[in-house]
């Protein structure tokens, strides 16, 4: 409403493509709920009417990785599960972000044992480490806001796995429709 009221007379604004894309991208983060154990229940609680993740534009939890751009790894990752998590991460389209939700995802937490990976950053790039065992839903919302902040500041050239960094890569030319 605010923007429309502001643009009532002129009808257009000038901005950078980067800025407008980042703004659109950060306000509709689609999470991939990689619910493994206890934290998954708190992740479910974030979706419930009391905490309501829909306020942040992220209520669209997609269980297929192809439609997501934020992976919330919620729960203990064991050595047997690690290849699965990595595979799902690889299936997500770029750009993508990762929240390591909870102590055992971040560091192994209270599970000092033979079958638990002591921190998923051994095989995944992690953007946010979220403390708590499990973190309260409010805490996950905080992490989401931090991720949004990060997405808002990031330019396309800074994404992981973007071919722009390498020289000699030709991008397809943009088809600009010109009127008249």
């Amino acid at each position: 409403m605010g923007l429309e009221a502001y643009l009532k007379d002129t009808g257009f604004i000038t901005t950078q493509v980067n800025a407008i894309i980042a703004w659109a991208r950060k306000s509709s983060v689609w999470p991939m709920p990689m619910g493994i154990s206890c934290c998954a229940i708190e992740m479910m609680a974030v979706g419930d009417p009391k905490y309501d993740i829909a306020r942040f534009g992220s209520e669209v939890m997609r269980f297929t990785p192809r439609q997501c751009d934020l992976m919330i790894v919620a729960g203990t990752v064991t050595y047997k599960m690690a290849p699965v998590v990595r595979k799902i991460y690889d299936q997500m389209p770029d750009p993508k972000w990762v929240i390591a939700m909870g102590a055992c995802t971040s560091t192994g937490g209270m599970y000092r044992s033979y079958s638990v990976v002591q921190g998923i950053d051994q095989f995944l790039p992690v953007d946010i480490y979220l403390a708590g065992c499990p973190p309260r839903p409010d805490n996950l919302l905080h992490a989401l806001m931090k991720i949004q902040e990060k997405i808002g500041k990031t330019k396309a050239s800074q994404f992981h796995n973007v071919p722009l960094k390498e020289e000699g890569v030709k991008l397809p030319e943009l088809n600009v429709i010109q009127k008249n």
Partner: peptide, 28 residues
């Protein structure tokens, strides 16, 4: 445990933190 794992974890001679390198991790 995965089928290729060679040890039996609850035996008393198996260390709590496991044997390093006995379970593979995907590459980063």
């Amino acid at each position: 445990m995965p089928e290729e794992f060679e040890y039996y974890p609850l035996r008393k001679d198996f260390p709590l933190m496991g044997i390093p390198g006995s379970l593979p991790l995907p590459k980063k």
